[in-house]
Design a protein around this nucleic acid. Structure first.
Lengths: 119, 119
DNA sequence: TAAATATTTCAAGAATTGTTGAAATAAGAG
DNA sequence: CTCTTATTTCAACAATTCTTGAAATATTTA
Protein backbone atom coordinates (compact mmCIF):
# COMPACT_ATOMS: atom_id res chain seq x y z
CA UNK A 1 0.00 0.00 0.00
CA UNK A 2 1.35 3.39 -1.01
CA UNK A 3 1.12 6.55 1.07
CA UNK A 4 -1.65 8.03 -1.07
CA UNK A 5 -3.79 4.91 -0.76
CA UNK A 6 -3.20 4.86 2.98
CA UNK A 7 -4.24 8.51 3.19
CA UNK A 8 -7.50 7.76 1.38
CA UNK A 9 -8.19 4.80 3.66
CA UNK A 10 -7.35 6.83 6.78
CA UNK A 11 -9.54 9.72 5.60
CA UNK A 12 -12.37 7.27 4.99
CA UNK A 13 -12.16 5.92 8.53
CA UNK A 14 -11.62 9.32 10.14
CA UNK A 15 -15.30 10.23 10.26
CA UNK A 16 -17.83 9.17 12.85
CA UNK A 17 -20.54 7.99 10.45
CA UNK A 18 -18.12 6.18 8.21
CA UNK A 19 -16.35 4.46 11.10
CA UNK A 20 -19.69 3.14 12.32
CA UNK A 21 -20.64 1.99 8.81
CA UNK A 22 -17.30 0.27 8.60
CA UNK A 23 -17.78 -1.48 11.93
CA UNK A 24 -21.26 -2.53 10.91
CA UNK A 25 -19.88 -4.11 7.74
CA UNK A 26 -17.22 -5.94 9.75
CA UNK A 27 -20.00 -7.90 11.46
CA UNK A 28 -21.99 -8.34 8.25
CA UNK A 29 -19.51 -10.58 6.46
CA UNK A 30 -19.08 -11.11 2.72
CA UNK A 31 -22.78 -10.74 1.84
CA UNK A 32 -22.69 -7.22 3.18
CA UNK A 33 -25.76 -5.10 3.80
CA UNK A 34 -28.07 -3.09 1.58
CA UNK A 35 -27.87 0.70 1.62
CA UNK A 36 -31.30 0.84 3.23
CA UNK A 37 -30.25 -1.51 6.03
CA UNK A 38 -27.14 0.54 6.69
CA UNK A 39 -29.15 3.77 6.66
CA UNK A 40 -31.66 2.39 9.17
CA UNK A 41 -29.08 0.80 11.47
CA UNK A 42 -26.95 3.95 11.60
CA UNK A 43 -29.65 6.64 11.33
CA UNK A 44 -27.91 8.25 8.39
CA UNK A 45 -30.16 9.83 5.75
CA UNK A 46 -30.13 8.13 2.32
CA UNK A 47 -28.49 11.04 0.51
CA UNK A 48 -25.85 11.39 3.19
CA UNK A 49 -25.23 7.65 3.15
CA UNK A 50 -24.54 7.73 -0.58
CA UNK A 51 -21.94 10.41 0.07
CA UNK A 52 -20.22 8.41 2.81
CA UNK A 53 -20.33 5.10 0.94
CA UNK A 54 -18.53 6.81 -1.92
CA UNK A 55 -15.81 7.94 0.46
CA UNK A 56 -15.43 4.42 1.84
CA UNK A 57 -15.23 3.18 -1.74
CA UNK A 58 -12.63 5.80 -2.62
CA UNK A 59 -10.66 4.59 0.37
CA UNK A 60 -10.91 1.07 -1.00
CA UNK A 61 -12.55 -0.14 2.20
CA UNK A 62 -15.81 -1.38 0.69
CA UNK A 63 -17.11 -2.74 -2.58
CA UNK A 64 -20.71 -2.41 -3.75
CA UNK A 65 -22.90 -4.20 -6.25
CA UNK A 66 -26.51 -4.18 -7.30
CA UNK A 67 -28.76 -6.99 -6.10
CA UNK A 68 -32.25 -6.59 -7.45
CA UNK A 69 -33.36 -3.12 -6.61
CA UNK A 70 -30.99 -2.71 -3.70
CA UNK A 71 -27.29 -1.90 -3.63
CA UNK A 72 -25.31 -4.10 -1.29
CA UNK A 73 -21.92 -3.21 0.17
CA UNK A 74 -19.36 -5.38 1.89
CA UNK A 75 -15.99 -4.88 3.48
CA UNK A 76 -12.92 -4.93 1.25
CA UNK A 77 -10.94 -7.00 3.70
CA UNK A 78 -7.56 -6.78 2.02
CA UNK A 79 -7.49 -3.00 2.21
CA UNK A 80 -7.96 -3.01 5.97
CA UNK A 81 -5.26 -5.61 6.30
CA UNK A 82 -3.05 -3.48 4.09
CA UNK A 83 -3.69 -0.38 6.16
CA UNK A 84 -2.67 -2.06 9.39
CA UNK A 85 0.44 -3.37 7.64
CA UNK A 86 1.14 0.13 6.34
CA UNK A 87 0.84 1.60 9.82
CA UNK A 88 3.01 -1.03 11.49
CA UNK A 89 5.55 -1.93 8.81
CA UNK A 90 5.78 0.88 6.30
CA UNK A 91 4.72 3.94 8.20
CA UNK A 92 6.76 3.03 11.28
CA UNK A 93 9.42 1.25 9.21
CA UNK A 94 12.32 0.09 11.33
CA UNK A 95 10.37 0.80 14.50
CA UNK A 96 7.39 -1.46 14.05
CA UNK A 97 7.36 -2.09 17.81
CA UNK A 98 6.21 1.50 18.24
CA UNK A 99 2.97 0.64 16.52
CA UNK A 100 2.35 -2.71 18.12
CA UNK A 101 4.29 -4.64 15.48
CA UNK A 102 6.64 -7.54 15.99
CA UNK A 103 9.35 -6.74 18.53
CA UNK A 104 12.04 -9.10 17.20
CA UNK A 105 12.08 -7.89 13.61
CA UNK A 106 11.68 -4.32 14.79
CA UNK A 107 14.78 -4.64 16.95
CA UNK A 108 16.83 -5.91 14.02
CA UNK A 109 15.67 -3.07 11.80
CA UNK A 110 16.43 -0.53 14.53
CA UNK A 111 20.03 -1.71 14.73
CA UNK A 112 20.50 -0.89 11.06
CA UNK A 113 19.01 2.54 11.62
CA UNK A 114 21.11 3.39 14.68
CA UNK A 115 23.61 5.41 12.70
CA UNK A 116 20.92 7.44 10.99
CA UNK A 117 18.93 8.47 14.03
CA UNK A 118 19.85 11.84 15.42
CA UNK A 119 20.06 11.06 19.13
CA UNK B 1 -8.83 3.46 23.34
CA UNK B 2 -12.37 4.72 22.84
CA UNK B 3 -13.97 5.44 19.49
CA UNK B 4 -13.68 9.21 19.90
CA UNK B 5 -9.97 9.00 20.69
CA UNK B 6 -9.46 6.72 17.69
CA UNK B 7 -11.32 9.19 15.49
CA UNK B 8 -9.04 12.01 16.62
CA UNK B 9 -5.95 9.90 16.00
CA UNK B 10 -7.21 8.79 12.58
CA UNK B 11 -8.08 12.37 11.64
CA UNK B 12 -4.63 13.47 12.70
CA UNK B 13 -2.96 10.90 10.44
CA UNK B 14 -5.35 11.44 7.54
CA UNK B 15 -3.54 14.45 6.13
CA UNK B 16 -0.51 14.45 3.90
CA UNK B 17 1.58 16.97 5.87
CA UNK B 18 0.72 15.41 9.20
CA UNK B 19 1.44 11.89 8.04
CA UNK B 20 4.88 13.01 6.88
CA UNK B 21 5.50 14.81 10.17
CA UNK B 22 4.45 11.67 11.97
CA UNK B 23 6.79 9.50 9.92
CA UNK B 24 9.62 11.96 10.50
CA UNK B 25 9.07 11.74 14.25
CA UNK B 26 9.07 7.94 14.08
CA UNK B 27 12.69 8.10 12.96
CA UNK B 28 13.59 10.86 15.40
CA UNK B 29 13.09 8.86 18.58
CA UNK B 30 12.34 10.10 22.09
CA UNK B 31 14.32 13.35 21.82
CA UNK B 32 12.07 14.39 18.98
CA UNK B 33 12.76 17.34 16.71
CA UNK B 34 12.36 21.09 17.06
CA UNK B 35 9.55 22.84 15.21
CA UNK B 36 12.11 24.55 13.00
CA UNK B 37 13.74 21.26 12.04
CA UNK B 38 10.35 19.75 11.19
CA UNK B 39 9.41 22.81 9.16
CA UNK B 40 12.65 22.69 7.17
CA UNK B 41 12.58 18.92 6.60
CA UNK B 42 8.98 18.93 5.42
CA UNK B 43 8.81 22.34 3.70
CA UNK B 44 5.82 23.38 5.79
CA UNK B 45 5.58 27.06 6.71
CA UNK B 46 5.97 27.86 10.43
CA UNK B 47 2.38 29.05 10.88
CA UNK B 48 1.00 26.03 9.08
CA UNK B 49 3.23 23.74 11.10
CA UNK B 50 1.85 25.11 14.35
CA UNK B 51 -1.63 24.29 13.09
CA UNK B 52 -0.72 20.71 12.16
CA UNK B 53 1.27 20.03 15.33
CA UNK B 54 -1.82 21.03 17.31
CA UNK B 55 -3.88 18.49 15.37
CA UNK B 56 -1.31 15.77 16.03
CA UNK B 57 -1.37 16.75 19.69
CA UNK B 58 -5.17 16.66 19.75
CA UNK B 59 -4.93 13.17 18.28
CA UNK B 60 -2.60 12.25 21.12
CA UNK B 61 0.09 11.25 18.65
CA UNK B 62 2.78 13.68 19.77
CA UNK B 63 3.84 15.49 22.89
CA UNK B 64 5.74 18.80 22.89
CA UNK B 65 7.88 20.70 25.36
CA UNK B 66 10.02 23.77 25.40
CA UNK B 67 13.80 23.34 25.27
CA UNK B 68 15.54 26.69 25.42
CA UNK B 69 14.01 28.81 22.73
CA UNK B 70 12.82 25.92 20.64
CA UNK B 71 9.80 23.67 21.01
CA UNK B 72 10.58 20.00 20.61
CA UNK B 73 8.02 17.34 19.71
CA UNK B 74 8.26 13.58 19.92
CA UNK B 75 6.04 10.66 19.12
CA UNK B 76 3.51 9.55 21.71
CA UNK B 77 4.24 5.90 21.13
CA UNK B 78 1.44 4.43 23.22
CA UNK B 79 -1.24 6.19 21.20
CA UNK B 80 -0.03 4.67 17.95
CA UNK B 81 0.13 1.29 19.58
CA UNK B 82 -3.39 1.85 20.91
CA UNK B 83 -4.67 2.87 17.50
CA UNK B 84 -3.41 -0.30 15.85
CA UNK B 85 -4.94 -2.31 18.68
CA UNK B 86 -8.20 -0.43 18.20
CA UNK B 87 -8.24 -1.17 14.49
CA UNK B 88 -7.40 -4.86 14.90
CA UNK B 89 -9.07 -5.80 18.16
CA UNK B 90 -11.82 -3.32 18.96
CA UNK B 91 -12.85 -1.98 15.60
CA UNK B 92 -12.82 -5.41 13.96
CA UNK B 93 -13.80 -7.19 17.18
CA UNK B 94 -14.34 -10.89 16.66
CA UNK B 95 -12.86 -10.70 13.20
CA UNK B 96 -9.38 -9.50 13.97
CA UNK B 97 -8.06 -11.60 11.10
CA UNK B 98 -9.77 -9.18 8.72
CA UNK B 99 -7.41 -6.45 9.82
CA UNK B 100 -4.25 -8.50 9.96
CA UNK B 101 -4.72 -9.57 13.57
CA UNK B 102 -4.03 -12.93 15.11
CA UNK B 103 -5.74 -15.72 13.20
CA UNK B 104 -6.07 -18.16 16.09
CA UNK B 105 -7.85 -15.85 18.51
CA UNK B 106 -9.87 -14.38 15.67
CA UNK B 107 -11.15 -17.80 14.71
CA UNK B 108 -12.28 -18.49 18.28
CA UNK B 109 -14.08 -15.18 18.49
CA UNK B 110 -15.71 -15.74 15.12
CA UNK B 111 -17.17 -19.04 16.29
CA UNK B 112 -18.93 -17.22 19.11
CA UNK B 113 -20.29 -14.70 16.65
CA UNK B 114 -21.51 -17.23 14.12
CA UNK B 115 -25.07 -17.10 15.37
CA UNK B 116 -25.16 -13.33 15.27
CA UNK B 117 -23.86 -12.81 11.75
CA UNK B 118 -26.53 -12.48 9.13
CA UNK B 119 -25.25 -14.80 6.45
C1' DT C 1 -47.37 0.45 -18.59
C1' DA C 2 -48.35 2.51 -14.04
C1' DA C 3 -47.23 2.37 -9.23
C1' DA C 4 -44.14 1.43 -5.55
C1' DT C 5 -39.52 0.83 -3.58
C1' DA C 6 -34.52 1.76 -3.37
C1' DT C 7 -30.94 4.63 -4.32
C1' DT C 8 -28.47 8.49 -6.54
C1' DT C 9 -27.91 13.13 -8.19
C1' DC C 10 -27.84 17.85 -7.60
C1' DA C 11 -27.49 22.47 -5.92
C1' DA C 12 -27.53 25.26 -1.88
C1' DG C 13 -25.84 26.20 2.33
C1' DA C 14 -23.41 25.18 6.80
C1' DA C 15 -19.41 23.61 9.01
C1' DT C 16 -14.78 22.35 9.15
C1' DT C 17 -10.13 22.40 7.64
C1' DG C 18 -5.99 24.38 5.78
C1' DT C 19 -2.99 28.48 4.16
C1' DT C 20 -1.05 33.01 4.42
C1' DG C 21 1.43 37.08 6.00
C1' DA C 22 1.76 40.31 9.60
C1' DA C 23 2.01 41.15 14.37
C1' DA C 24 2.75 39.24 18.99
C1' DT C 25 5.21 36.46 22.39
C1' DA C 26 9.18 33.95 24.45
C1' DA C 27 13.93 33.11 25.35
C1' DG C 28 18.93 33.41 24.70
C1' DA C 29 23.00 36.36 23.25
C1' DG C 30 25.51 40.60 23.12
C1' DC D 1 17.98 46.39 27.79
C1' DT D 2 18.20 45.58 22.93
C1' DC D 3 18.75 42.48 19.18
C1' DT D 4 18.10 38.15 17.16
C1' DT D 5 16.05 33.67 16.72
C1' DA D 6 12.10 30.53 17.34
C1' DT D 7 7.43 29.91 17.53
C1' DT D 8 2.55 31.19 18.04
C1' DT D 9 -1.49 33.96 17.30
C1' DC D 10 -4.72 36.06 14.50
C1' DA D 11 -7.84 37.34 10.92
C1' DA D 12 -8.89 36.74 6.28
C1' DC D 13 -9.57 33.83 2.83
C1' DA D 14 -9.70 29.45 0.05
C1' DA D 15 -10.76 24.78 -0.16
C1' DT D 16 -12.94 20.80 1.34
C1' DT D 17 -16.35 18.19 3.67
C1' DC D 18 -20.95 17.23 5.14
C1' DT D 19 -26.08 17.78 5.25
C1' DT D 20 -30.51 18.63 3.24
C1' DG D 21 -34.67 18.16 0.46
C1' DA D 22 -36.32 17.83 -4.09
C1' DA D 23 -36.00 15.75 -8.42
C1' DA D 24 -34.12 11.99 -11.20
C1' DT D 25 -32.97 7.13 -12.11
C1' DA D 26 -33.34 2.08 -11.76
C1' DT D 27 -35.77 -1.99 -10.71
C1' DT D 28 -39.55 -4.88 -9.33
C1' DT D 29 -44.54 -5.65 -8.80
C1' DA D 30 -49.35 -5.17 -10.03
Amino acid sequence: MKTQEALRALSALAQEHRLSIFRLLVTAGPNGLSAGEIARLTSISPASLTFHMKELDRGGLVRSWRAGRTIRSALEVETMRGLVTFLTEDCCAGRADLCGGDLMSARQACCQLDGVLND
